[in-house]
Simulated assay, not measured.
Amino acid sequence: MWRGAAAVCLDEEDRLLMVLQGTPEEEKKWAVPSGGKEAGETFETCCLRELKEETGYEGKVVRPLFVKSDGAVEVRYFEVVMTGGRMEVRDPDGLIHEIAWKAAAEISNLALSFPEDLPFLLSLFEESASSQTR
């Protein structure tokens, strides 16, 4: 089974950190920073390594959010807050083409690498908005 982790980062303006990814031969699509777990790595460590490689940002895992599994693939999504770094593509695989902060209204119109994640991603904005009105 392939295992990986994804970093879900919302900024103070309620925008989601996303990367435009794909091989040169395929259509580029948007996703949250994510990638495969290496031997001996925890899911949390994988999440933060992928965040750094794909975006240049450093972060801290706040909490687990969601596990997506279909029997062949397991991806664990974590809420992450930024602790440092700066926006720059450092992807050793050369699959990341752009980094951007996207508002909720923009995400519905993006070509997503994992379209099945859309309801989950949109729910994050709703959760963030409801926590700010308390």
Rank of each mutant, 00 (worst) to 15 (best):
M1G: 13
M1C: 05
R3I: 02
R3V: 07
A5C: 06
A7N: 06
A7L: 01
A7K: 02
E12K: 15
E13W: 11
E13R: 14
D14G: 12
D14V: 09
L16A: 10
L16D: 11
L16C: 12
L17M: 02
M18C: 07
M18A: 08
V19P: 10
Q21S: 12
P24W: 03
E25N: 09
E27Y: 08
K29Y: 00
K29E: 01
V32Y: 06
G36K: 03
K37N: 04
E38Y: 10
E38G: 15
A39K: 11
T42H: 12
T45N: 01
C46D: 08
C46T: 15
C46Y: 06
L48A: 03
R49P: 00
L51W: 12
E53F: 04
E53S: 03
G56L: 14
Y57W: 14
E58D: 15
V61T: 10
V61F: 14
V61R: 07
R63I: 08
R63T: 13
P64N: 06
K68P: 00
G71I: 14
G71R: 09
E74Y: 04
V75E: 08
V75P: 01
R76N: 09
Y77N: 02
Y77G: 07
F78W: 06
E79N: 04
V80K: 04
V80G: 03
M87C: 11
E88P: 09
V89I: 15
R90K: 15
P92F: 07
P92G: 10
D93H: 14
G94S: 02
L95K: 04
H97Y: 12
I99H: 04
W101G: 07
K102S: 11
E106Q: 14
I107N: 01
S108H: 05
N109L: 11
N109S: 13
S113M: 05
S113K: 02
F114E: 00
F114A: 02
E116R: 03
E116M: 07
F120L: 10
L122P: 09
L122A: 05
S123I: 11
E126Q: 10
E127R: 13
E127W: 02
S130H: 03
T133S: 14
